[in-house]
Design a protein around this nucleic acid. Sequence first.
DNA 1: ATATGTGCAAACTCTTTGCATGGAG
DNA 2: CTCCATGCAAAGAGTTTGCACATAT
Lengths: 122, 122
Amino acid sequence: MQRDTQQRRAIRRAFLDAANPLTPDEVLSRAQGVMPSLGIATVYRNLKLLTDEGWLAPVELPGDSIRYEIAARPHHHHFVCRQCSQAFDVPGCPPGVERLAPRGFTVDSHELVLFGRCAACA
Amino acid sequence: MQRDTQQRRAIRRAFLDAANPLTPDEVLSRAQGVMPSLGIATVYRNLKLLTDEGWLAPVELPGDSIRYEIAARPHHHHFVCRQCSQAFDVPGCPPGVERLAPRGFTVDSHELVLFGRCAACA
DNA sequence: ATATGTGCAAACTCTTTGCATGGAG
DNA sequence: CTCCATGCAAAGAGTTTGCACATAT
């Protein structure tokens, strides 16, 4: 069974407070605000655990480490700022995306990433 | 100035012969067919160099190492097979993709990745 | 002849794992 | 009191860099 440790609670809190997908490092520094002794290995272990559990979903955006976000969010995509390299959520999805696949290929999911400058870095 | 070494020629050949974007490792093993003494460090150095030159373009598909492809190709996207983890080119692009960005954000490029089973792994 | 390019090995970064200790139940 | 979870440090994977030697020009 799963224990409700301070570390795990701090990590979950980090995601609940975040508006964007977070890298392991971002999770570490945010969660250390509450739990300063937290180590990076624990972060990785919990990211894996919370993902297996279905609470987190991996967001594999190019360029950086893998990020994670709370799984129970509606379908959306991401914008990555080339300046500050933060990831932002983008609502919506272009229709008909799955139909681009070549004949004989089966699409089970897709990821769309926009690159550019975020409002703060513009 | 740039020297036309056997190694560099073997690396360029690997891309000219490939139909898909290649990871550094894939480049190494293909180019070693022609140049067996080729080392991975040389591959990395040349990938960087050919990219800076504009001959290659990085394709940062999630999940794996970064891949590269010849830059002078028409705009297209990619399909990644979850079984064999190869990347395939997908012609076409859904219209209006750039308009998904939030107000105040500037889009300079985008990447669309489809995931699933390729024809061979289906 | 000269300076760029290469191969090797060491350094680095990111992630995972082993092991003794700590804390939730 | 038990066992799962944590922290630390070491081990792995992928990538980059320093240095002496090779080679394209």
